[in-house]
Write a protein that binds this DNA or RNA. Structure first.
Lengths: 170, 170
DNA sequence: CGTGCTGGGTTGAGATTGTCAACCCAGCGG
DNA sequence: CCGCTGGGTTGACAATCTCAACCCAGCACG
């Protein structure tokens, strides 16, 4: 198997310092138990404390802490609103930074759909809504890998992680 | 702003039960502190207990627990190996299921690169390695959204989550 | 044959984080 | 001025994580 050869080769080459990695940083922001689920709800249009709480079943103190954390990280922003005949309250909306987590959510969703769905199939699918409603597309959407040279639909084993401009080595 | 209208609309429509979601299931497998970092290392060719430990700086008992969990989840498999002049030991290799987490890792990496990289730029980039080494491509790779009708490079706001075959409602 | 080294762990104390339940409080409506 | 509602805070307890110490099988060395 080429499998074994790959491993041996990999073990011998100069290694990128794995602690200096954007993935680790990303996980420090959204890597705990609830963060990504909160972001998922926000993507889905949820914005109020009580709605997050009800839909996720998360403890309120923890939700409070997580929302603060996500606001501090710039993933959500806290905006005042006022229902007619009610005092001012706050809601939590996604920022651009938060919206950019959508591919991550989709990748996780796709993986869950492939390996963890129950018999009836995936409970949620992602579809294409074109901005112009006249010719709605509505086809299922997937994530594909594409390289700058225009090669598209790369299988995942044709990609590798290489040192970037900010790389450090062991 | 259309932003506000979207939220209101979203709040009023029939909602997918968020607990019956592949994402939540996916997170229950790889959602804790170290799992994805372990998988990342595994993708990178790391397979041995001590190597994971050294590269991640994770406590050995926790690594032990996580590796067992990932094996139980089918993300890694435990295979015996024997170095010459040494006794039999075990290493942890990615399964297909584990390899399929690569898009998730890439999405997270891309997000981290965009928002969390330091001045020098991202420490790691993903490149295209063609199987046939003769015409190596080596261009940077990115994840793009594509729908079944062939629309490609969808902006994330042109996709939405819709009920799938296994959907439940609130 | 005893002694130590090395990879791959286990055990246990203490800090951190999460859960659950109770409580708070501002302001509207009655 | 009473209670209800949304959006929290507080505190007891449980589960997890971190850190440090220890273990143990088998090879290598003397």
């Amino acid at each position: 198997m080429a499998d074994q050869a790959d491993l041996t080769e990999a073990r011998e080459q100069r290694r990128i310092d794995p602690s200096n990695c954007s993935m680790a940083r990303a996980l420090s922001v959204v890597g705990e138990r609830w963060s990504l689920l909160i972001v998922r709800e926000a993507v889905d249009g949820v914005s109020r404390f009580g709605d997050f709480r009800a839909r996720l079943g998360i403890a309120s103190n923890l939700l409070s802490t997580r929302l603060d954390g996500l606001v501090a990280a710039g993933v959500l922003r806290r905006v005042p609103y006022q229902e007619p005949g009610d005092r001012q309250r706050f809601e939590y909306r996604l920022t651009e930074k938060g919206r950019d987590l959508r591919p991550t959510l989709m990748a996780l969703l796709a993986w869950g759909d492939k390996y963890l769905a129950d018999e009836q199939g995936p409970p949620v699918v992602v579809r294409h809504r074109v901005a112009d409603q006249a010719h709605g597309c509505d086809e299922p959407v997937s994530l594909v890998l594409e390289c700058a040279a225009g090669h598209t639909h790369l299988p995942t084993d044709e990609v590798y992680r290489a040192p970037g401009p900010g790389a450090r080595f062991l």
